[in-house]
Design a protein around this nucleic acid. Structure first.
Lengths: 354, 354
DNA sequence: CGGATGACCGCAATCGTTTGCAGACTAGGC
DNA sequence: GCCTAGTCTGCAAACGATTGCGGTCATCCG
């Protein structure tokens, strides 16, 4: 691989000039700049990221830690993070903790050696473990809140409210909530949101169903318990579970939505591919990802690599810095209930006989 | 962040000793090694990856380029790549080209500045563009073959054969194949596999249906054409399309599998979540990812970072190198037909009246 | 007791960039 | 014609690690 020295030799200038021609164009004359650029292209010169990072003290890399890449929710987040980062000229190391808190903490340590900052998506570790793992590093949490670390979340409580309210409007009086994993932060948010909603809305009661795996299979036991609870509608922790519930109900000969309405959370792509199509609380996955990198970048300060530093050469008081610093350290994104075919007016014995 | 100098000072040794204590334990005495390790832990010392990379000329990073992270197929591959890489102590930069050939080529250039090697998963660019973009870099192709670049693929032809053979065994005589994107390498492989299979197997004819988008929506036109073609079974380019076909057929009142059998390709998770569950050709996604990393690592040579270099200090003739070099440059993984509920004996007019 | 052997450690060069500083040269004002 | 200001360029010192080479001991053998 060609390096700056090769380019310098071939262009007949010093290596300083080459460096400047590429990253501070205004500091060299037009003629030499063009010459350098030409030679650089000829030699297919790509500055060595390690060397630059070493000198500048900034790698222009960020890390992304997620529990499971195969979960479509995190896949979307990851995609958004990548694309937003790339737009700012920074690359991202992703790591998948396989839902394992221990590995998660490991990865935080490992990754942070080679990145400027970290975004932790729905970390599974405990508050205290997280707090001291990120000691001194710049991180932003996504979909979780611990201490007063910079955070981007969604309005889980409002999502819960909208779901309950929708069901109440359809005429349901008792709705079940099927919880996700025991220590999930967003799960707890949603659960609390449900009870709060039930308290605020007249004529509806929420029965809480124990913890289930946030997968398709977790929907099976949830479905049975929901039926047994006497509820006419069930809200699941996430879409996959909701699909599992629907499947189980179908197998038991219980029709959705007539005999049981089902609501999910997430609005993953599959939600529209099944029948009945799933009514669900859409959470802005891409928005979360974008917001997380924006927040992180603002925390790291403006000097990014996307556009070469330039402008007034060395007065140190560049007035044209994009206003990144304005991003607040806690962001909450709105959610939206999308009503499809898995919810309807309940056909209760009274309504059929009355 | 603490650096090697801090550790050296505090441990009362030179920086060389610190370095060796950490990465070549046998070269320092037990006592000093322990001391250094202790201090390193105290200071939470993490070697600076950029500096090490600069000196050693090897970043211990690899790049992964995929067309779309939200596609569950690539999500699986990505996950497998990450985990296999991590097991060898190397990190991976992932990049998502959004199915755009131009961006793909861009990313190849960008990424390769900071990685040792690259795995290109199902690249969308043309053969020639790829060939000169990877000029001089070490890459491995996944699910595609161009020139004689190192490659890991699956046995598409066999998958096609198994699908056709399965349908023939059920009694189908004319089966439609719904193609994916026009310039897809694996699509072409499958298409050719179908006609080859039809030629080999008595009593079955394959009718080819034009190119469709490899998404759920692409299944709609495919379904209609399949029906019009008089086929009693249809094989789709991938699972998503197959699901779209099933959905369209359902909407038209055509029952699957009785009136039309449907076979997919991939075996994504959703395939089991729909009803009827999808008969499909399972392709070893994780195996592809793992294989790609193994192949790439073998190409890069053995010195990885996972376990510290050690053993006989400097004789240069370490005999215990793991036998990575044995990996062939072209690997083809087997596929497997998983039969579920979307295929069955055709109920033809003759069979119902007979 | 002398010398050789080998284990352990430190000096200093090196990787490829960026960047403070200063030199060279041009232009312009008096 | 001289001095100043300004533009452009080069020198050399960093950044933080790895590693060849050589030096200092202790140990052991004869």
């Amino acid at each position: 691989m060609a390096n700056v020295r090769d380019v310098a030799l071939r262009a007949g200038v010093s290596i300083s000039t080459v460096s400047r021609a590429l990253s501070a164009p205004s500091m060299v004359s037009e003629a030499t700049r063009l010459k350098v650029l030409e030679v650089a292209r000829e030699l297919d010169y790509q500055p060595n990221a390690a060397a630059r990072g070493l000198r500048v003290g900034r790698t222009n890399n960020i890390g992304l830690l997620i529990p499971d890449l195969e979960n479509p929710f995190f896949a979307s987040v990851t995609k958004a993070v990548h694309s937003r980062a790339r737009a700012s000229g920074i690359s991202v190391f992703a790591a998948d903790s396989d839902e394992d808190p221990a590995q998660e903490l490991d990865l935080i340590r490992n990754l942070s050696a080679q990145v400027d900052g970290l975004v932790l998506a729905s970390p599974r570790a405990s508050d205290s473990d997280i707090l001291d793992a990120v000691e001194g590093k710049t991180v932003v949490l996504l979909n979780r809140q611990v201490g007063d670390l910079p955070t981007i979340t969604i309005d889980n409580a409002d999502g819960a409210f909208q779901a309950v309210n929708h069901l109440r409007a359809l005429g349901h009086h008792t709705v079940a909530y099927a919880s996700g994993p025991a220590h999930s932060w967003s799960g707890e948010q949603r659960r609390a949101g449900m009870v709060a909603a039930a308290a605020r809305i007249d004529g509806v009661e929420v029965v809480q169903l124990g913890n289930f795996q946030p997968y398709f299979s977790g929907g099976y036991p949830a479905a049975d318990l929901a039926v047994a609870s006497g509820a006419t509608a069930v809200i699941a922790y996430n879409d996959l579970m909701a699909l599992g519930i629907i499947d189980r109900l179908r197998n038991r000969g219980i029709t959705v939505p007539d005999e049981m309405s089902v609501v999910g959370f997430d609005d993953v792509a599959v939600a529209t591919l099944v029948s009945p199509a799933l009514t669900t609380v859409r959470i802005p996955r891409a928005g979360l990802g974008r917001g997380a990198v924006d927040l992180l970048l603002s925390l790291l300060g403006t000097p990014r690599d996307g556009t070469p530093r330039d402008g007034t050469p060395r007065d140190g008081a560049r007035a044209d810095v994009p206003s990144r610093a304005a991003v607040p350290a806690h962001t909450q994104l709105p959610v939206e209930l999308v009503v499809r075919s898995s919810t309807s007016v309940p056909v209760t014995p009274t309504s059929t006989t009355g």
